[in-house]
Design a protein around this nucleic acid. Structure first.
Lengths: 111, 111
DNA sequence: GCGATACTGAAGTATTCACTTAACTATTTT
DNA sequence: AAAATAGTTAAGTGAATACTTCAGTATCGC
């Protein structure tokens, strides 16, 4: 479920926007309300809510409404899934380079 | 330079598309030509070239043309930058949760 | 040199995005 | 109860995306 391509789509797409990454940075320092997330951003509150919905749909953020304030927090599981995907590919490539290096070193010795 | 928001934009945006992620998966197993990248994808070669240009512009992939074939390879540095950004945010959040846990454990003992 | 191969580029199109404004709903505060 | 606060929703707009097809341009193999 965490490796569902559609879910990864949503997560990477969510992280592709600078405003949303800024919101994630804010949330990495602790939970925040919608207005608190909006404060440093040069856009309407409405736009922020829309960004927030994208983040929530991607699973990167979860929210909970108490009274009139919606409190948002990071969902580390989802973040880990995105991280994991990247890591796998990078490692596969780097292991390949290592093997290639070993191979070259060996064949060099054999001359 | 690796933490340039614009560069991160390009990288996450590049990874947001399933076709491009599939191309990255193929490349993580070794260099490939444009046609080899295109082979498993249900779209025109032209579309693949366009995706490839997105990947290259993001820095995630570098290419080199010899004769008539363009060979593509993963650029692990860029991949590491994206990974790093995610990791930082996740760790910040998880450390926060840990501190909170410690705090709750302490105050509980004090009763 | 001639045909096949491996791309490349331009133009067009349908869809999706990132906003905006404006009108509205629920909760507190006074 | 009235006014302020916090957020939501809908509709619209301009720009960016993800393709397509078609018409190229270099190699390469014979």
């Amino acid at each position: 479920m965490l490796h569902d391509p559609a879910q990864l789509d949503l997560m990477f797409q969510a992280l592709a926007d600078p405003a949303r990454r800024q919101m994630m940075e804010r949330l990495s320092r602790g939970p925040a309300s919608v207005s608190q997330l909006a404060e440093p951003l040069a856009m309407s509150l409405s736009a922020v809510v829309q960004h927030l919905n994208v983040l929530e749909a991607s699973g990167l953020v979860s929210t909970e409404k108490l009274g009139r304030v919606r409190t948002c927090r990071i969902e580390p599981k989802a973040l880990r899934a995105a991280e994991h995907w990247i890591n796998e590919r990078r490692l596969a490539w780097e292991r390949r380079l290592d093997r290639l290096g070993d191979f070259l070193a060996e064949t060099k010795q054999q001359t």
